[in-house]
Design a binder for these strands. Sequence first.
DNA 1: AGATAACCGAGACGGTACGTCATGTCTTGGA
DNA 2: TCCAAGACATGACGTACCGTCTCGGTTATCT
Lengths: 210, 210, 210, 210
Amino acid sequence: MQCRSRSARTGRPRSAAADAAILAATRTALVELGWSKLTLGYVATLAGVAKTTLYRRWAGKNELVVDAVAELFDELELPDRGSLAADIEGVVLQFAAILDRPEAKTALMAVVAESTRDEPLRERIRTSIVDRQKRLVLEGRARAQARGELPPESDPADADRTAALIFDVVAGAVVHRTLVSAEPADEEWVRSFTRILLVGLTGAAADAAQ
Amino acid sequence: MQCRSRSARTGRPRSAAADAAILAATRTALVELGWSKLTLGYVATLAGVAKTTLYRRWAGKNELVVDAVAELFDELELPDRGSLAADIEGVVLQFAAILDRPEAKTALMAVVAESTRDEPLRERIRTSIVDRQKRLVLEGRARAQARGELPPESDPADADRTAALIFDVVAGAVVHRTLVSAEPADEEWVRSFTRILLVGLTGAAADAAQ
Amino acid sequence: MQCRSRSARTGRPRSAAADAAILAATRTALVELGWSKLTLGYVATLAGVAKTTLYRRWAGKNELVVDAVAELFDELELPDRGSLAADIEGVVLQFAAILDRPEAKTALMAVVAESTRDEPLRERIRTSIVDRQKRLVLEGRARAQARGELPPESDPADADRTAALIFDVVAGAVVHRTLVSAEPADEEWVRSFTRILLVGLTGAAADAAQ
Amino acid sequence: MQCRSRSARTGRPRSAAADAAILAATRTALVELGWSKLTLGYVATLAGVAKTTLYRRWAGKNELVVDAVAELFDELELPDRGSLAADIEGVVLQFAAILDRPEAKTALMAVVAESTRDEPLRERIRTSIVDRQKRLVLEGRARAQARGELPPESDPADADRTAALIFDVVAGAVVHRTLVSAEPADEEWVRSFTRILLVGLTGAAADAAQ
DNA sequence: AGATAACCGAGACGGTACGTCATGTCTTGGA
DNA sequence: TCCAAGACATGACGTACCGTCTCGGTTATCT
């Protein structure tokens, strides 16, 4: 998350409480102000911390917000719900629930937009947020294959490509539904979406197997 | 785009040339600086126009950028390529090509992020950009139904829901692939995506028809 | 006051009412806003006149304000009150009454300040305002000499110098009392001032005559 | 000159050098541009200081200019020249010399004009500038009374009124001569003025004593 | 125990951009 | 030719944040 240049041993150590306070304050400020009106000075005030302390640990607004939002994605998990359909529905609902929070809504697209011109930021988003979701796709597929709902992959490269595609479809659809269409990704929508995705996946896999 | 409250007849009329110059300058500035570092002052300078002229016509950066980017979507169209698969591939490739431009890349997600806290802005995005794409989904489906590739819809409300779902899936997937995964939505990817979508659509429609 | 460049014959003649309205509006605006916050746009609005009309007749704020304030000094006159002392007291009270008006208070020193860097403006002030007062000094002295209260001047150049000196003392004292000390130039003050001035004048004249 | 509300101990202290640089830059800018065209931004640039630093210490242009000009009056003093006449001539010449500087010329009347609508500003002018001169009147009178040139005052209230009157006459005459009449307050003029004033003062005092 | 070193709060600093306002000019349609 | 209306280029306004810096003071670990 952040590192000090040298000699982490001597001198007063950084306050651990400050980190948590700052990230929480960032989320609060995101809810209050949105991304574009959020200022580091206000975050510092909210956290009861000097601006200097903030800059000592994060390079800027983008990095701070990524870290603050990334914590929201820690709760994502994939309990075995017995079928691929149920697993997909479950994780999509979880993801939609996170996106429904105002701090995530306003921040996620903003940092993605920033990342189009900032490679390190994109990398940070990838490791902090995106990969956390991608993992679920891989787990879900492995589980479905173990259940026999999906055939095992023959070509590993093709398997990676397919996983990436599924991920883009799932995450993209939920994000678009939530932020652009601004409609709730509720159970009915998720069920419709899952049906199409599932039919598409199994059907396309069957085609490919022929 | 903009309107004057009253008495459109009196006084010096607004320069039509200025509008075009400003929108073009906005796109140039987006390429040069990205969304977050774009300055209305700089846009005005680029356009050879006073800052006040800019503020007289747009409420702020967001509105201006939406209008500037919206023009990019004017080129979207849906020529009959003979099959539903070809139609989908064609329009997805067009959409991906627009998203690949740096001015669209940096601006689109940014204004969507802003729109999460600004209802009028969301409405503006919807009418200027989103509906332009949504129309293609409706046309494509109608054409596919005429060809017999898709069954006619019985329930109009259900038809609307399905169209919205398809739209979220298509647009969301392309956007996510391009901006979040930061991988090109090239022909191979589009073909894979189209296959899954198509199988899903026809299969799900067949399920529903049973 | 203002002049048109050429051919005062052809085309629509300038509205005479507009001039009066503008000057009155200027005084109103001076009272409302003071000199530094007065804007020509606001004067135009108050006068029910277009800004263009205003600029067609005056070169700028300073010139307009001088003309607007100069009208206040039209009322200055020197009725024969029977003695030099009474004449002086009378004119000083008149002058103090004008300076007590808020539009004169705020405007007079402001244009004088501007005139320190604007020779044409100083000339305009002199002819429009200052000479109007100076004349009274000359009239008063002539009348006092006719009454025998003051000896006739032998050297005309010396007479001019003395008149200028008296004028500076009288006008300066009243202005300073009113604007800098911000105390009223009431009858008591005027009487004290007049006594000193009168003693000084007659005594100094007697000294010089020795 | 300026003060901080509380806790003068914490945080980075204000730069003392900045104050001096800003006031000097203000005087330079006054000479270059005059009062009405003086810009706080330009003063900041001249002083090599950020605009915010300037606004942190002064409320606006008026307050800044008063402080900048007030420093000019620090040099006023009243050495004993042996007689009341010589003392008056000496101080009037000093005062006239200050008023002859372009920065004082353009600024003094301007801030007085502003002060007609701004009570705190008037107070600031009084304490920073006017009282500095007024003191000289009191000293001069005390010295003249010690010398026996003027009778001692019996009524203190009357003494105050007379001092104020003398001050208005002296300062007003010099200012009017210099700024309105725009003639130099040279030795000849000062001698004539002093004679009238002196005769007036001693004569009127003698009248009152009768 | 004392020295050392990095931390902390507060807040001033030089900058940059903001969005607004006034200036003085211009361009309409109409009198 | 004048007028009211209002758009125009220009440039200053006073404010807000940025990211850096300097203070006095506070913990820690290392001598």
